[in-house]
Nucleic acid binder design. Structure first.
Lengths: 221, 221
DNA sequence: ACAGAGCGTTAAAAAAGTGTGAAGTCTTTA
DNA sequence: TAAAGACTTCACACTTTTTTAACGCTCTGT
């Protein structure tokens, strides 16, 4: 049986969710504002968190950020329409998925199942894009079985880019992932590390493309 | 801080694992046989389980099977060589990964991190109008799965129009959204950007219609 | 038909963003 | 404490984007 934590300021919404979840065998606890939600999360160790973005006081994003400092619990965001930008931020910080109010009960339960199901096809602890292999286990990157000698920052950078290979990763996303929890301002230095990484990648079928004003994209041939 | 449960009959192995895990900030509990392990799992609700396959009495596979009846906790299998068939069975039942004894501490910790961090697939927030898809997370726009190469301003412009697809968006609204927080006066330049955008959209079922004196409207066929 | 307003289009100037080398600072290691 | 490595900062050339400006078109009302 799974424990679910609901963080939402509207009582009606909490009651609805509680009924829904309990009918599916969840054990449910609630919080009506952010600070309380964090305490509940720490105390009850829920298996999944349903977090409303539009919280008064400590906002939903801030709650998520603090939660992610010590917990990897799956988080499903509840948002209203016209919060696109905030939803994007939430996913960047580390939310797992979101539903838009009003939502159907079937959709909610389905998404809960998805983010909770950590089993299923075993994925190897490596990320592959064309001839590039990023081995998270051994902290090692290879192109065509040739090991790249990377610094920690370069490895983290390559990891983020490879996770989203073929798609744009914004500079904000990169900075958040690579310099997570650090105070320095790498907005300038990002260019330098990209430069170093490109040199080490060489001309071997992997290249990092810049999307001016947006971010970078890793392309494999 | 994560809780780990060790289920192994060899005391030496349990001690080794406990030291390793505690040095990395885990809270550790142990069980020396299967039945006891299941009780511990139910009581302590660990965040990860390290399960020895070669348990006396209730075998490792049986423990895993019963555990999976009510819990999705990540399980790392500890096996000795020459248990390939059993390892495969374990993965089929729902184990997340395995290490083969003897194993290095770095490898064990890395695999623990991986299986704990594993999440379900995310769906990205996107706006859709006919064949047009605007992906806010990746800052990408597609028409019929063909990616458009847009500048930041063009993307923001297309986003606003697509959000209100089929309806008129006044020039004031557009300027406020796209040039939010900027001091420049784009009232003239808006025409230029509309022009650029139209060229990139081409003739693929999406067009931007002008409503003279009012604003623009995005039409999808 | 004409004047004026709004719009589409093009080109060039201005601004913003990027690549790159090198020097400087910090941290780790012996 | 010194040396090595990694990260950051800085300067400057270069590229892309954005803004500005100019001109011709269409539409509308007189």
């Amino acid at each position: 049986m799974s424990k679910a934590l609901i963080i939402d300021d509207e009582q009606q919404m909490r009651r609805l969710l509680r009924m829904l979840l309990e009918s599916r065998g969840y054990e449910v606890c609630e919080a009506n504002e952010g600070q309380h939600g964090l305490q509940e999360a720490a105390f009850h160790r829920p298996d999944v968190v349903l977090l409303d973005l539009g919280l008064p006081g400590l906002g939903g994003l801030e709650v998520l950020r603090r939660l992610r400092e010590w917990s990897d619990v799956p988080v499903l965001i509840l948002s209203v329409r016209d919060q696109e930008a905030t939803k994007v931020q939430a996913l960047e910080i580390g939310a797992d998925d979101y539903v838009t109010k009003p939502f159907g009960s079937a959709e909610l339960l389905a998404r809960l199942n998805v983010i909770q199901r950590r089993r299923g096809p075993r994925h190897t602890p490596e990320i592959i894009a064309g001839p590039l292999k990023v081995d998270l286990l051994h902290h090692e990157a290879q192109i065509a079985d040739e090991v790249l000698k990377l610094t920690p920052t370069e490895f983290a950078l390559l990891k983020v880019l490879t996770e989203h290979a073929g798609r744009i990763v914004t500079q904000n996303q990169i900075v958040k992932q690579v310099w997570a929890g650090q105070s320095s301002d790498p907005s300038e230095g990002l260019r330098v590390h990209i430069n170093h990484l490109r040199k080490k990648l060489g001309d071997r079928g992997i290249r990092i493309v810049n999307e001016p004003g947006i971010g970078y994209r890793l392309e494999a041939e």
